[in-house]
Simulated assay, not measured.
Amino acid sequence: MTTDTDSRNLTGAQTNAARALLAMVTAFPHLPAPRLRPDVLTPATAEGTHAWGVNVSIHDGLGHFEQWRAALGLDPDAVTAHLDDDFTNWLEVSGTWSGVPVQVIGYFRFTDPGEPQ
């Protein structure tokens, strides 16, 4: 249940995330284009609460994931791998960039060397 005081539901709460998103596009025009969106990230604070941040989703290879992780200064030791039985896999890392929570996700598939690509 949300209330009127729940900041996740206030348009103004998105302002910092939107500014950070614009700053990313401006600061890193040379990087591969990811899908960028303001989003409520969970948990995004040291207290474990939700906060507006920027989700950076990469679908074009793990090299692009690594470029964005490094550009945003996110700790490589904080990267977690999620491996699913249906071959949808992803790497994920969260942190803070310009004072705003960020989450970088790189999707990938393992391929069978015997299967045509």
Rank of each mutant, 00 (worst) to 15 (best):
A44L: 04
A70D: 14
A71K: 00
M24P: 03
G106Y: 02
G61C: 06
V102R: 01
L31W: 07
N55H: 10
P38T: 15
D77E: 15
N16T: 14
M24N: 00
G48E: 04
G53H: 01
A33E: 15
N89L: 02
A46W: 08
V40H: 00
S94L: 06
H59T: 15
N9W: 06
A51C: 03
W90K: 03
T49P: 01
G53L: 04
R69K: 12
D39M: 05
N89A: 06
P32R: 03
W90Y: 13
I105S: 07
G48A: 02
A23M: 09
P76R: 11
E115V: 13
V102L: 01
E47C: 00
D6M: 10
F65R: 02
F87C: 05
L62K: 05
D75I: 13
R69N: 04
A78R: 12
L31N: 06
P101N: 02
V56Y: 03
G95L: 06
D112K: 12
N9S: 10
P113I: 14
D6Y: 13
E66Q: 10
E66L: 05
G95P: 03
A70F: 10
L22V: 13
G99R: 03
T42H: 08
G106R: 01
I58E: 02
G114A: 15
R69M: 09
A44R: 00
G48I: 06
T26I: 06
P38K: 10
L83F: 12
V40C: 05
S57H: 05
L91D: 07
G73H: 11
F110A: 11
T80Q: 14
V54T: 11
N89R: 04
T88H: 15
P34I: 12
T26H: 03
G99P: 03
W97T: 04
G95Y: 09
R8Y: 11
G53F: 02
L91F: 15
D60H: 11
A81P: 00
A13E: 11
P116W: 15
Q14N: 11
T42K: 04
G61E: 05
G95K: 04
H30V: 08
W97N: 01
S57F: 04
P43N: 08
R37I: 04
W68I: 13
G95A: 07
